[in-house]
Amino acid sequence: MASYVLKRILQGLFLIWLMSIVAFVAIYALGNPITALINPNSPADVIERVTRELGLDLPLHEQYFRFVGNLLRGDLGQSYVTSQPALGLILERFPATLELTLVAMTIAAAVGLPLGLYAGYRPQSLVGRGASAISMVVLSLPSFWTALALIIVFSIQARVLPTGGRGEIGFIFGVPTSLATLDGLRHVLLPALNLSAFPMALFIRLTASGVQETLHATFIRFARAKGLTVRRILFVYVLRNIVVPVITVIGIVFGVLLAFAVVTETIFAWPGSGRLIIDSIRSSDRPVIIAYLMFTVTIFIVINLTVDVICALLDPRISLQGGK
């Protein structure tokens, strides 16, 4: 177990190292950061002084070592716009994104998994056909489109929910969250619903096809030959078989959602890290973009590792000593 986890952590570190090269090239090789930091029309001696102060006159490999050294101390540079530490900006905004994503995942799983289970069991039924059709439509649509549709229906026409913002924040066990107040809940509902559309459709699809595939397996026929009830076959034998792929997908989707949140947060004015990255892109604030990228890569790696370990624990066929 330990050696397996260690191996995966090393793979993750390798990936982060790769990204650090990409990040370095993006900041230092593509375009001179000086031009972004100070007015390019400043006197030559000012430009030269700042260049020396920042170490930009050093050979590239020494600059890279300094960059990595800073990276290891958690210093991902400063925002060109606000001069605040880039990582700090992201960490400050991240809880809002995490909250939105978690609520969206919960909605998606609560609706998508049972619906997918049923659609897989009775694909020809009205619910089965309807679920597949809706998931196909949702997967076709970009999330800004569904966001606008939700706003038109719930905010502008029905006037029951606000169009954006985070609303009042309360505390649950000392954690600041919108889920603690009614106003906060009202604000989180639409963006979370919008963010949940994609994973919900994905869950419906994957569970349905997983169930259908499993139902054709010999071991299911054998379970029927044992005289088990349909209920028991569906909820124990079929579910047990698709639990590992479902958890894998939940993990992947969770990562995808953190990225997808960019669009939803922008439209619903949700003050998360996704909105920050769009603002940074618009103002060419490279250190923040790079910090966001490094941060996201790290989160992806952590999620993947967690998912792999959970799956290995759940699937008796995977030995943790040496993979499959």
Partner: peptide
């Protein structure tokens, strides 16, 4: 594999951020 690990919207956003 590395590329597919990231959703394409994120890759595209980062590229647009870097390229303009």
């Amino acid at each position: 594999d590395l590329q597919l690990a990231f959703p394409s919207i994120l890759t595209a956003l980062v590229l647009v951020a870097l390229l303009g």
